[in-house]
Design a protein around this nucleic acid. Structure first.
Lengths: 243, 243
DNA sequence: CGAGGTCTTGAAGACGATCAACAAACGTGG
DNA sequence: CCACGTTTGTTGATCGTCTTCAAGACCTCG
């Protein structure tokens, strides 16, 4: 097993893989690329010839708005195939940007195409991961449209806890959270100032602490409750049948 | 050709279909169901055994919020496979509700599974449509997070014009728009009152009229400009290669 | 013609944005 | 290891936007 280790582990969450399938995934990676923080992995409007799998670090997807601002549409953590959609969509409607230094594996679209022809089960697994992305989008829409800023913030912390735990990147009830308040604002549709005040509110309620890039959940039950969070939409541990 | 006509026409937009593939799609429909307005097609939390294709009428997808409200996450028009994602996601994270009386075709998940095994090209086309759904979600997030209410509203009118045109449901620069202001509010994350005032603003600017459920675009250029609309994300007319 | 839903209007108040200034943390090089 | 500069986080005050509540007008369909 090479660098595809994290990809096989991620997909195995959703169903067992044969040795052959694991090899196919391992060989699918053509290259591993390193990025610094705040660098473009793929730009909005690009037509990439490969998709990117995050091996290490945090990244996000974003769309620009005419006046110079941006909307962050997703956060990505190791194991995420952050632009798998470009395999079929061709032209990127959003861009991928690193939030921290990242190690990224590249998988040529040609290889993915071959997988869709020869490995229907792997295809369903890959399709499945893009459907989860869409489910996360919907949950974010709910947050932006109908939840209070504090609920929205609490919700993100819940979501990331579940997602990071599923790839082994939590320590107890804490995890690394290297996202700045300005970036949170761009994700929530709030000003940086308001994000700051919202975080203070969560701290005052003693449901979490956030110091030096480490987020610690003090009261998981109450955090979920404040966020109206249910992990169902993340589909962790759901199995796709092989046949 | 039977009721799958609209499905083949929709998918043919994205690449040619062989006679065999058309037949497969035609036979995939197990049943056609009629719904009145404001009826559940699939409920949030359901585990349906089939997916629904809208043949006639308008529908939406929605998520409930604890306090009794809802967030509409998508509008659906004829030709849309509104819950294709339930094929792999199993448990619905959102619900499908009709906005007007609808005719809906049901396609068993078992049949879709078979297609993913035997027809890789059809599979890619179907996957593609779910990726467009996700791209629309992202565009809505941009609207909710970063666009003014009037831009958001203008954007929806642009989007629906392009989508309805692609299935032949526009007449000149007008189309049927049976969505109430309360429903728009649930989609935009705005109060009904504010939606009303926003529509007045658009009318005063003479870019559109909306009377008796007919939306007429008076100034397409300016409407797009106000909305920062570019149809790219809808990928109409993009072709998927067969091999 | 009447009833229910939808649209419209006004006024009050809550909420979040913006601006500006300062504090704290971080990292980089001396 | 400390000094310094830059980025990130924090605070207060003001202003505009959107919500809420409540009432009335307008459709539309039986």
């Amino acid at each position: 097993m090479g660098t595809a280790d994290i990809l096989t582990r991620r997909l195995e969450q959703f169903g067992p893989l044969s040795d052959e399938e694991k090899q196919v995934l391992d060989r699918a990676i053509s290259q591993v690329k390193e990025f610094g923080a705040d660098q473009d992995v793929v730009r909005e409007g690009d037509r990439p010839s490969h998709s990117s799998l995050i091996l290490e670090g945090f990244a996000c997807r974003q769309k620009h708005v005419p006046d110079g601002g941006r909307q962050i549409t997703a956060f990505h953590v190791p194991g995420d195939f952050c632009d798998l959609h470009s395999f079929l969509l061709k032209k990127m409607d959003d861009g991928v940007v690193t939030l921290t230094p990242c190690k990224v594996a590249l998988v040529p679209h040609k290889t993915i195409r071959q997988i869709t022809t020869d490995y229907p089960y792997l295809t369903r697994l890959l399709w499945f991961t893009t459907l989860i992305d869409a489910a996360v989008h919907r949950e974010w829409m709910l947050g932006m449209g109908r939840l209070s800023p504090s609920a929205r913030t609490a919700h993100l912390f819940c979501e990331l806890f579940v997602r990071l735990k599923s790839v082994g990147l939590t320590e107890g009830n804490a995890y690394r959270f290297p996202i700045t308040q300005a970036e949170l604002g761009d994700a929530f549709g709030l000003s940086t100032v308001h994000v700051n005040r919202t975080l203070q509110e969560l701290r005052e309620q003693r449901v979490l602490t956030l110091e030096r890039g480490i987020l610690t959940i003090c009261d998981w039950e109450r955090l979920q409750e404040m966020a109206a969070f249910s992990p169902d939409y993340l589909h962790v541990g759901q199995k796709i049948e092989r046949n």
